[in-house]
Amino acid sequence: MMVDLGKYAGTVLSAYGVSLVLIGGIVALSLWRARRMKAQLRAVEERVKHGL
């Protein structure tokens, strides 16, 4: 099902597209950094615990 957006289809779709890309970007970046930092911290903690 597709709504008829009339003559403003490009306008509406590009607004939604830009916004979803930006929101997706910040979410992906946050998730990626969270995962990487978790792994790095675990590695460092292991190393410290086992006395190098």
């Binding site: 910040i26 979410v27 946050s30 969270a34 911290l41 460092v44 410290v48």
Partner: peptide, 27 residues
């Protein structure tokens, strides 16, 4: 809700980053 979720997640990341810097400095 999206904002709250992102801030919670990113704050966790910042806390971990800070802890890691502290550990590395001590090392």
């Amino acid at each position: 809700l999206l904002f709250v979720a992102l801030v919670l997640l990113r704050t966790q990341t910042e806390i971990r980053a800070r802890r890691m810097r502290a550990l590395l400095a001590r090392e």
